[in-house]
Nucleic acid binder design. Structure first.
Lengths: 138, 138
DNA sequence: GTTGTTGCAAATACTTTGCAACTAT
DNA sequence: ATAGTTGCAAAGTATTTGCAACAAC
């Protein structure tokens, strides 16, 4: 997977340097499709004996989010979660209130409807947050 | 507006006492349809020389949210905002990225679509968060 | 009188920041 | 050599909590 180029380009675009730490964090995030907290990423690295600081994890994630390589998920009170955005089309999330499971969904009709609604009010949608908090049907 | 009864009932239901502070906070929240932070509510009371503590503002809001009298809005990183829910049907929010304005919207088709999507995955929607971050069409 | 409530200050939880040591260019 | 980056610990921000004084029942 030659996705390391994506990191290099993003850093270049931001006028930032390519460092070992940034590479490790990038590898950690792109090696999974989970929805993880900054702390999870930090701990996962530490378990592999890669010691980058929490500060650097947060700082690097910021750059990745800003450059559309990582998606930030704000779920109510819980700490923000982050997911790898490479090879991943846009989707929204369904959060199971019983298990905490996060299910991704995408619906074109829904996307269009949003745009229409905004337009009716004289706006265009730049981004959106759509989360369904659900329970399993018994 | 005899809505004070709603507070009294909610408190009764929760086995909580009716106090001056809770009444002041209730009055403050129900006297406006704004989307305000706990701090705004606290300061607004203070400006009227009503000195309730922040702790009590937060504790009271919790009860009101739990009893469906107040809606809690989590907008990304910003502090939570609260809005009076009395006489107000369900709606979602559009947040203008340029002005910070919050526009309410409701669309039945969209609501139904959500339910359908969840159902297709074997879930039912308990609550949802739907926010459009928008910019004005020039 | 008993039990719930308040205000305060301290604690908490996640995240950001200042700064001196370090590293990429 | 210069300017960006790191790790650490401290600060920050929004909110929650322990506790002693107090108020509602």
């Amino acid at each position: 997977m030659e996705n390391i180029e994506l990191l290099v380009e993003a850093l270049k675009k931001e006028g930032l340097r390519f460092t070992e730490q940034r590479k490790f964090i990038w590898d950690e995030i792109t090696s999974s499709n989970d929805h993880r907290e900054a702390e999870d990423i930090f701990l996962s690295l530490r378990k592999k004996n890669i010691n980058v600081s929490r500060a650097t994890v947060y700082r690097t994630i910021d750059v990745l989010v800003k450059n559309n390589l990582v998606r930030k998920l704000d779920i109510g009170d819980a700490p923000s979660k982050y997911e790898n955005k490479i090879d991943s089309h846009h989707h929204d999330h369904m959060i199971c209130l019983e298990t905490g499971d996060i299910i991704e969904f995408y619906n074109e009709e829904l996307e269009n409807l949003q745009d229409e609604i905004a337009k009716k009010h004289g706006y265009k949608v730049i981004r959106h947050v759509h989360q369904l908090f659900v329970k399993p049907i018994k």
